[in-house]
């Protein structure tokens, strides 16, 4: 008997956030969804002058990558939010 795949607990840390963003997502969730949720939690509105991206173990995965791809057999993923000013 096969059950539903367990949700993956995602933690996103951001240096200027008072606390990390933590939420459970379905494994098939793409990173773009996690990024949008984290930006909302941190009170950041993307305006096209700054690029916001996520690091996983020092690499920047594509936003189309799913949490299942990142997590492998793990049930938790830790991501770091970073910024790059693209237009001054």
């Amino acid at each position: 008997m096969t059950g539903q795949p367990k949700d993956i607990t995602v933690t996103v840390t951001f240096a200027t956030a008072p606390k990390p963003f933590r939420e459970d997502f379905e494994p098939r969730t793409q990173l773009s969804v996690v990024l949008d949720a984290a930006l909302k939690e941190f009170g950041i509105t993307a305006d096209g002058t700054t690029r916001y991206y996520l690091l996983h173990k020092d690499d920047e995965p594509a936003l189309t990558v799913t949490l299942a791809d990142l997590a492998g057999h793990a049930h938790a993923v830790h991501l770091r939010l970073r910024t790059e000013t693209t237009q001054g």
Binding site: A15, T45, T83
Partner: peptide, 20 residues
């Protein structure tokens, strides 16, 4: 969006951003 954020650990934020 470019306003200085004084919450969390701004020192770490600056160093991480320069490293990037």
């Amino acid at each position: 969006p470019h306003a200085w954020r004084a919450s969390g650990n701004p020192f770490l934020y600056v160093v991480e951003t320069v490293q990037g």
